[in-house]
């Protein structure tokens, strides 16, 4: 992480606030805190905030706030960041039906790592994944924190159609396809949750900066949850993340 954020110009209405040049949880926390502080302060002229792995892209209206004023307000926010009270991150539980037609590549992932399919599921469901950012397509989740024990390269030939809700592995990343799309990730399962629904009040189910945990369910449970999701009656289980500080 840089000692002070860099301010980079992204055109006449964009300012990119860069916090570091690596992917790590500390940088992401700082970005999350900065984003929350800017939203709380309601700085006039700020139109959009786009947090990513290591930076925050701010879209502003230069006729409502000058670049100079904007930067000085952002610097001020940085100084008061430590005293800012942020909501504790939460963990949302994502039910997944692993293997079979829902996860056609589970066996390949297992063989590739000299594990049994059950061991792959065990490893995949025993970590809290930091939801770093959304991007690429609407609702696509970039998750961090997967065990290298189940890392598997992408498919040599991408599939042309992957169903929404598919859970996959690409290298040492894991993620969920929010909409039907082409893609080259190894598919190990599928969730009945609708991560992305443009007609819902909050189009994306989870928020960057929080965590998710996968939970293996059987076919019956998958179908039961799926039916509730269809009727808009399913709320995913959540619990507070026990931070390292919290455990002490």
């Amino acid at each position: 992480m840089y000692s002070e954020p860099r301010f980079l110009l992204a055109g006449d209405k964009g300012l990119n606030m860069e916090f570091g040049n690596e992917i790590n949880e500390k940088i992401n926390q700082k970005i999350r805190a900065t984003t929350a502080a800017i939203s709380q302060k309601k700085i006039p002229g700020i139109k959009e905030l786009i947090p990513t792995y290591r930076s925050l892209l701010i879209i502003y209206e230069p006729l409502e706030i000058s670049l100079k004023d904007l930067i000085s307000q952002l610097k001020e926010i940085q100084e008061g960041l430590d005293s800012l009270k942020l909501p504790e991150p939460i963990v949302s539980v994502i039910p997944v039906l692993y293997g079979g037609e829902m996860g056609p590549d589970l066996d390949f992932v297992a063989r590739h790592n000299n594990l049994s399919p059950e061991e792959v599921i065990e490893i995949h469901t025993s970590a809290d994944y930091l939801f770093y950012m959304l991007g690429f397509t609407p609702g696509f989740t970039y998750l961090g924190g997967m065990s290298e024990k189940i890392a598997t390269p992408r498919l040599k030939t991408p599939r042309t159609k992957i169903p929404a809700g598919s859970v996959g592995i690409a290298g040492s990343q894991t993620g969920i396809y929010p909409i039907e799309s082409p893609g080259g990730w190894q598919l190990i399962g599928r969730t009945p949750l609708k991560l992305y629904d443009p007609l819902r009040e909050t189009p994306v189910l989870f928020q960057a900066g929080n965590y998710i945990r996968f939970k293996a369910v059987d076919k019956e449970e998958y179908e039961r949850i799926g039916a509730l999701v269809q009727e808009n009656k399913y709320t995913p289980e959540t619990y507070p993340l026990l931070t390292k500080e919290g455990k002490n």
């Binding site: 992204a10 055109g11 990119n16 040049n21 947090p51 990513t52 930076s55 892209l57 991007g135 690429f136």
Partner: peptide, 30 residues
């Protein structure tokens, strides 16, 4: 680079060295 936000009108230059101008439907990060 590590993916970051893309503003309208950004000119990306991938490894092949030719520019791509990001327009209305551009992806949000790259």
């Amino acid at each position: 680079i590590i993916s970051d936000g893309i503003a309208l009108g950004s000119i990306q230059v991938p490894g092949h060295g030719s520019p791509i101008v990001m327009m209305a439907d551009h992806q949000t990060t790259g």
